[in-house]
Design a protein around this nucleic acid. Structure first.
Length: 675
RNA sequence: GCUGCCAUAGCUCAGUGGUAGAGCGCGUCCUUGGUAAGGACGAGGUCGAGGGUUCAACCCCCUCUGGCAGCUCCA
């Protein structure tokens, strides 16, 4: 007899060699029907897997997230079969399940386009309608490899060899139906019992990918799809995508007049329009206030610096690929021209950085370092915390650019802390607390923290191992005391020191890397920074780089989506709008507006010829939090009828309203309703 | 950067080898209306840029620029 220990701890004896399906049927008819796959000692397996000995067993139904992955992997097979029906020459490579669907990498000369999706879906539907079972069979490596080689699909041969290296016992195939008659694919499984379990599916997109993710290697067409146990879940998913699309900052930002990206200005360069500038300015004021409280000093530095500065810092030429090309000194060019230097030679000199010229700054640290170095320092001065909303420029590859979250010019809420090594733990902690306050104020409490540590086996990290140990310990201790979940990520440290990244999840579940805190021993050394210690000797300070938001562009892009454009009052570009019922009350409306404006509220007035319903509609579409309706009834008693985020608040005195607005602004209340 | 798709009015998009259309927005006028769209009229387009094929190109071909998706990359 075999023994299955079920998740509730109960033991179930069944004949040795029974399948999981039989076990499920034995527990209950409905469980047997609902069963999709099994889990033995934590490994997901087919329902046809046979049980021996004593094992922890779980029956997976369509409610289990792991079962959804199985379904999607099976859907990938169905899609691959459909594609091969249409294009018999298509070579399959690899087709895994994903969190939100699946894909299959396919080598096919003819491009698959979105106009082909309907055809693919039609073939898939017919395969699903046949409700064919997934049947596994196995072959020993030698025999299996021989067969794959004969079939001439080197990707599958490669997959098989990798399976062998990974220690698999044999090779397995899955037939969708009857062996020898139906479609099959080399696959480790597991799969759902039959194709009919796929009730909702859709081919989503197609894109290019590369074999083993190597750009220089063979190219595949990666066809993405998604699948669900239930058509309704598919519809919900598609609806969610639609919602996400609607709150996309690239759509909402221009719609709300926050920013524009203009081809004439350049790819990845953001134009902040007046309303977007308000949001940014408010955020910067908010950070500045905390900087003052934490003993920072704000500085300003130029957008460019001499090339030599970045050679010292190591940014040039090491990172020249991701920098704008240098601005070459005019006289240097003339002199080289006089010497008979060709364009190609000049270009080579530029690549090598062997020119006199300037660089658009890719980072603020060298400038801040030169501020530090501009005067001698005593240990009594430390830590010195220099902060700047510093604009940097990076030559992101054109394919990487997108909206405000990936741009070529952006402003970091940057700061560099110069301290003694023993001050590192306290300073790192202070930085983390700042990030926590900043994110918490915006209601972004759903984040995780990654502590990037060095990979002890890698040579890319510079500096003294003992120093690394202390810095890593400080980062870990600080992360721990923060009281939020964090993960250690060996190999993710910067080459100059460990770092702590904040990855924020927005309201629709997408993750964004925002804030970062990095410990750096390297730059102080490169720039030969020093301070005079209590022992009257020269010592090397440690630097900490930190940016709670990372970049103003990215954080505001994320915030637009997080709030769906309905910013909390303190950030709203227009906080209130006065809506006169008719022009009879426009004088009173004007007076209300002026009164609020004089008190510092960002208020406007809709004096158009529209009726009140249309005025409310357009104010609502602009997501203006307070709509102040004034008609003859209000004018008579010197009040306004208040709508707050489309909820009627009744009539209020202007003074009462003002007090309420000021209170809400001062407390930086997060919008309670995301409309 | 690579691959695929895309580019028509301020926005969202129709459309045809014989030099263009809708809705929204915008302007003017009428209406002065009470909580998410009152009505009429009107203006607005080198059909992304450059080249080619053609009697004729917004449409077909090539190049470029830009956008989207993905791959790869992100100090």
């Amino acid at each position: 007899m075999a023994v299955a220990i079920l998740p509730d701890g109960s033991r179930k004896e069944i004949p040795d060699g029974s399948t999981i399906k039989a076990l499920a049927d034995g527990i209950g008819k409905r469980l047997g029907q609902a069963a999709v796959a099994g889990e033995i000692d934590g490994t997901v397996v087919d329902l046809t897997t046979r049980l021996t000995g004593e094992k922890q067993v779980k029956i997976l139904t369509d409610r289990d997230p792991q079962a959804l992955l199985v379904l999607r992997h099976s859907a990938a097979h169905v899609m691959a079969e459909a594609i091969q029906r249409i294009w018999p020459g298509a070579l399959l490579a690899y087709g895994p399940a994903l969190d939100n669907g699946f894909y299959y990498d396919i080598a096919l000369d003819q491009p698959i386009s979105s106009s082909d999706f309907a055809r693919i879906e039609k073939e898939m539907a017919s395969i699903i309608a046949e409700d064919r079972p997934f049947v596994r069979y196995e072959l020993p490596f030698a025999e299996g490899l021989k067969r794959l080689e004969a079939e001439g699909n080197r990707y599958k041969v490669d997959n098989a060899q990798r399976a062998q290296q990974a220690g698999s016992a044999c090779l397995s195939w899955y037939v969708t139906g009857e062996k020898g008659r139906n479609w099959e694919d080399l696959c480790m499984g597991p799969h759902i019992p039959s194709t009919g379990r796929i009730k909702g599916f859709k081919v989503m997109s197609v894109a290019q990918s590369h074999w083993h993710g190597d750009v220089t290697s063979d190219r595949f067409q990666r066809v993405y799809g998604t699948a669900f146990f239930d058509k309704k879940q598919l519809d919900e998913y598609l609806h969610l995508l639609e919602e996400a699309r609607k709150r996309d900052h690239r759509v909402l930002g221009p719609q709300l007049g926050l920013f524009a990206i203009d081809d004439a200005v350049g790819q990845g360069l953001v134009l902040w329009k007046p309303k977007g500038a308000v949001v940014r300015q408010e955020l910067q004021n908010f950070i500045s206030e905390h900087l003052r409280r934490q003993g920072y000093h704000q500085v300003f530095t130029p957008h460019i610096g001499r090339l030599g500065l970045y050679k010292t810092s190591g940014h040039f030429p090491y990172y020249r690929e991701s920098q704008f090309p240098p601005l070459v000194d005019r006289e240097f060019i003339s002199q080289k021209a006089a010497e008979g230097c060709s364009c190609a030679q000049l270009s080579n000199l530029m690549e090598a950085g062997e020119i006199d010229g300037y660089l658009l700054k890719p980072m603020n640290c060298p400038h801040h370092i030169r501020i530090y170095a501009s005067e001698p320092h005593s240990y009594r001065d430390l830590p010195i915390r220099l902060a700047e909303f510093g604009t940097v420029y990076r030559w992101e590859k054109s394919g990487e650019l997108g909206g405000m979250t990936r741009v070529r010019g952006f402003t970091q809420d940057d700061a560099h802390l110069f301290c003694m090594e023993e001050q590192v733990p306290a300073e790192v902690l202070g930085c983390l607390e700042l990030v926590k306050i900043v994110l918490g104020t915006l209601g972004m409490n759903n984040y995780r923290v990654r502590v990037g540590l060095r990979d002890p086996d890698s040579a890319k990290y510079v500096g003294d191992p003992a120093q690394w140990d202390r810095a890593e310990a400080a980062c870990l201790a600080a992360a721990q005391s923060l009281g939020v979940a964090f993960t250690k990520e060996p190999g993710e440290a910067a080459f100059y020191g460990p770092k702590i990244d904040f990855v924020v999840k927005d309201v629709i579940g997408r993750e964004w890397q925002l804030g970062t805190v990095q410990v750096d021993y390297q730059l102080p050394q490169r720039f030969d920074l020093s301070y005079i210690g209590a022992d009257n000797k020269s010592h090397r300070p440690v630097m900490i780089h930190r940016a709670p938001f990372g970049s103003m562009e990215r954080v505001i892009g994320v915030l637009i989506e997080h709030f769906n454009g309905s910013f909390p009052l303190w950030l709203s570009p227009v906080q209130a709008i006065v809506l006169p019922i008719s022009q009879k009350t426009s004088a009173f409306a004007q007076q209300v507006m002026e009164q609020l404006r004089a008190a510092g509220v960002r208020v406007e007035m809709d004096d158009s010829a529209d009726k009140i319903g249309a005025k409310i509609r357009s104010a609502s579409l602009q997501k203006i939090p307070y709509q102040l309706v004034v008609g003859e009834k209000e004018a008579a008693v010197n009040k306004v009828a208040v709508r707050h985020r489309n909820a009627d608040q009744g009539q209020l005195d202007v003074e009462e309203l003002l007090a309420r607005l000021q209170q809400e602004i001062a407390t930086k209340g997060v919008a309670e309703a995301v409309v």
